[in-house]
Design a protein around this nucleic acid. Structure first.
Lengths: 150, 150
DNA sequence: TATAAAAATTGTATAATATTCAATTATTTA
DNA sequence: TAAATAATTGAATATTATACAATTTTTATA
């Protein structure tokens, strides 16, 4: 056995997909070449970042999803973006935003289970200088990445 | 002019993409048929929900991104999932989760600007029975949908 | 508002890619 | 340990994307 599966999941999280021009052409009843031209234009202006897969995360061992609201320690308070970029590198992080209000950052994280989350949290607090965090554990993921999950 | 662009964006938000088998085969140095077989298996077990595009949302007039923490009114408190499913139907909603803690729901929303957001908020409070909301406006989207935005 | 330049649409031809199928190998089950 | 099931693979075929040139539409400018 070659465990192609896990390598596919890794690649599909961020890319290795492409538009279905023929299907779109049929759907919106325009010539495939017109569709092709317009897609290339969107790509050229970098309005499209990538094409990727959306998973049912429970089925790929990433069913534990948490939103983390973060206050940074004083030293890091002035450069939340730099910290956010560090945080973004972790493959379990679905999203990171620098935000207004009572918190500096909001992270959306996908882990296998609560134990893996605990490991992440312990490390992150030290590594990224979190002063305080509030975690909202997802009980039910109704929609992700614009895709309804039912 | 046919305004193919906006129709493409709409389709690409949730689908109309497909894996690049040849590219993956080259990348991980396995036969294309093996890749094909493994992808179909992932699809069959519904581990993969769809293939879609990720946008630079500023470039498609959806640059205003907000996380909304929601408390439901007493009447709706017992069925957050039902409300979440209603919320999920709106195409501006990237994600909705039912969560633990001080709030019942967390919504990630993408709008054109603050005005559009205000319209959404006004309507949502009534329509979905929000008792109280806290909005975290994204100042900088560092990573979304597992894709770093720089 | 006429005209030139640029951008967008389109059909045809071709190149690239996915998919089918049958054979082989590996793994699991009883 | 044999039989059944699942996974890997190469060759043939079907489908799809892409390149290209021609045409139409839109925009810019005098």
């Amino acid at each position: 056995m070659k465990d192609i599966r896990s390598r596919l999941i890794k690649l599909f999280k961020q890319g290795y997909c492409t538009p279905q021009i023929a299907r779109i052409a049929k759907k919106i009843k325009e010539p495939a070449t017109t569709i092709h031209y317009n897609i290339k234009k969107l790509e050229k202006e970098e309005a499209i970042k990538t094409y990727k897969a959306v998973f049912d995360y429970k089925k790929i061992e990433e069913g534990y999803c948490i939103y983390i609201l973060v206050n940074l320690i004083q030293e890091n308070y002035a450069e939340p973006e730099k910290i956010a970029k560090e945080i973004a590198k972790d493959s379990r992080v679905e999203s990171v935003d620098v935000v207004t209000g009572d918190y500096e950052l909001i992270i959306k994280l996908r882990c296998k289970n609560i134990d893996e989350y605990y490991e992440y949290a312990k490390e992150a607090i030290k590594k990224y200088g979190f002063a305080k965090t509030i975690s909202l554990t997802s009980l039910k993921q109704v929609k992700t990445e614009f895709v309804e999950l039912n």
